[in-house]
Amino acid sequence: MMKKPCLLVVDDHPTNLKLVSDLLEFEDYEVLRAVDAETAQEMIRLTVPDLVLMDLALPGMDGLTLTRLLKADPATRHIIIVALTAYAMKGDEAKAREAGCDGYITKPIDTRSICAQVAGYLKKGQTAHSPQTL
């Protein structure tokens, strides 16, 4: 039996954090939650997730800074990071990708498609990062 993917949702807005986490848990993902970048870093040190849904506008260290730190570290470089943001202006997605985000989902989230989007990023990430196993 395959282990279920572990996801970390980082969002300082309690309603968004709960909504996204609940939707993903309903789809049988293991979901960790963090309200800021510092908490997210602590959680990642304890349990390295398969994918992080990263709010970019966080108190203290922002999501782009945390993404750069994670992508610069060989121990966490492989984690799939998807920006989850209300920033939907021209150029914002490019900034997120330059910081190292593997994907980009805008808020308000589409509750009908977020799980499929996450599954797609996980699938892409597995084929990109995993050595072929027999």
Rank of each mutant, 00 (worst) to 15 (best):
M2A: 11
V10D: 06
D11I: 01
H13M: 10
P14N: 14
V20T: 13
V20C: 11
D22V: 03
E25N: 12
F26Q: 14
Y29M: 01
V31Q: 00
V31P: 08
V35K: 15
Q41R: 15
Q41P: 01
R45K: 09
L46F: 08
T47W: 03
L51R: 03
V52T: 01
M54G: 10
M54W: 13
A57S: 14
L58M: 14
L58G: 09
G63C: 02
L66A: 08
L66N: 05
A75W: 07
T76M: 03
R77Y: 00
I80H: 05
I80Q: 08
I80L: 00
A86H: 08
A86F: 08
A88H: 12
A88T: 14
M89D: 01
G91T: 07
K95T: 05
A96S: 12
R97L: 12
R97I: 10
R97V: 02
A99S: 08
G100R: 11
G103C: 04
G103I: 10
Y104F: 15
I105C: 09
P108F: 05
R112K: 15
R112C: 11
C115R: 14
C115Q: 05
A116M: 12
A116K: 15
Q117M: 15
K123L: 09
K123W: 10
K124L: 13
K124Q: 13
H129W: 08
P131F: 07
P131H: 01
L134V: 01
